[in-house]
Design a protein around this nucleic acid. Structure first.
Lengths: 221, 221
DNA sequence: GCAATAGTGTCTTTCAGACAATATGCA
DNA sequence: TGCATATTGTCTGAAAGACACTATTGC
């Protein structure tokens, strides 16, 4: 009997112009050669310490991106999702500020609005929808959106990120209160946003000790 | 090169005497033959429509239980977790009222407090801890605990379930308000708890349309 | 000064917990 | 009646949203 195919796929998400986008790559081999799809590949026993490691390797090889945030989403499986046979795909999702993708400058990576792509191969449509749902749900009560906001950001910028993800306007005073009591940001001393013909805003960054772990909040935004 | 081992494991959780317990089985084959472990097994391409299906099959075969609630937990992987080689285990967790396990009456199934078991094989200790953390976290803002409470239950009973899971006393009035506004329970007309030398309580059941899906709440309990 | 956006003070509404009163079964 | 627990009413404090006011920049 043929073996089960073991793969990983990555849903790389970013925010461009307040729109949630997913990174797609044209497949360079069969099946679905030439079709835009999620970055993915086979697990390599000799190279990968686990599936997370495999996801990082795939991302590094295909997009040259080291994501600041990567989390396991779920595992998708079955006899029909891959025409080559019964397959298991362990899927991770990554959050990356747009400028990281931009500066990585990988020409093959295409950013597409998460609701846009049709005709995706495998069950990638389902996978993307699952990732977006997870991100939206988790954004309500965690610091997750900060990973989409870049290295430093102002509170109004961060609020727009949250609003873009959750699809609704947030109360400015409440938002700032929340951010204060979550106690996960620190001001970048003396650094302010520049450019507009208006009052500059204080720049903040994630507290260093929180770079790699989420902060959860009690009551949502 | 040797193939990747593809397995499923199930964390079957129940509440017995207000204690969260996990179902363990003595392994009937190597590796770790005779050692108590989570029910699990290889994915069978010819039998299983997906990993969820495989988890249900394993549970049915080894414990004769059809769980009312089964959700994918996460996938655990790596070269060292199974002595036979690089392995991937897609893990599900199931919630079952104690009397379902009791009446299934499978003699091999042992219920053990979730913090108890030491010397578990593979990474089953980590898996159980992950499942318990997920259950506790999700219980705060969903109807999940209802699946541990049995077919019908009184509100005070359900509150004790929530309290056992979350490890803290809950405000009675607030709890009842939440249950009312979650709108997921319906009273069993004319049915009341009996037995005690005191006022009987109204029996409730999950609304039929919610049997198979969770209700989420906005703000926690 | 004016336009535009940042940041804050305060009032009002909404929600959760405390407390207590009432309800209902059994001995 | 008295006890134990269920159920409900009401008060109070905390949290969230609405609104408006002040602050700071470029023009």
């Amino acid at each position: 009997m043929q073996q089960i195919l073991c793969t990983v796929d990555v849903v790389l998400l970013t925010l461009q112009d307040d729109m949630l986008k997913v990174a797609l790559l044209r497949r360079d081999r069969e099946p679905f050669k030439g079709v835009a799809a999620l970055p993915g590949g086979f697990i390599r026993q000799q190279d990968d310490a686990d599936t997370r490691d495999a996801a990082l390797r795939v991302l590094r090889d295909k997009t040259a991106i080291e994501p600041p945030y990567l989390e396991q989403l779920a595992t998708f499986s079955g006899p029909a999702r891959d025409p080559r046979g019964w397959s298991v795909s362990v899927v991770y999702y990554a959050l990356v500020p747009f400028d990281v993708i931009d500066s990585a400058g990988h020409p093959d990576v295409k950013l597409v609005g998460v609701d846009k792509p049709v005709g995706l191969p495998f069950d990638h449509r389902l996978i993307i929808d699952t990732a977006v749902a997870r991100l939206r749900s988790k954004s309500q009560y965690s610091s997750l959106p900060c990973y989409l906001a870049g290295e430093t950001f102002t509170l109004p910028q961060l609020q727009r990120v949250y609003e873009a993800l959750m699809g609704e306007a947030l109360n400015k005073v409440s938002f700032r209160r929340k951010m204060t009591e979550m106690d996960m940001l620190e001001p970048v001393e003396g650094a302010f946003s520049a450019g507009g013909a208006h009052r500059p805003a204080q720049l903040y960054r994630l507290k260093p000790e929180l770079r790699d772990r989420l902060t959860l909040i009690e009551r949502g935004l």
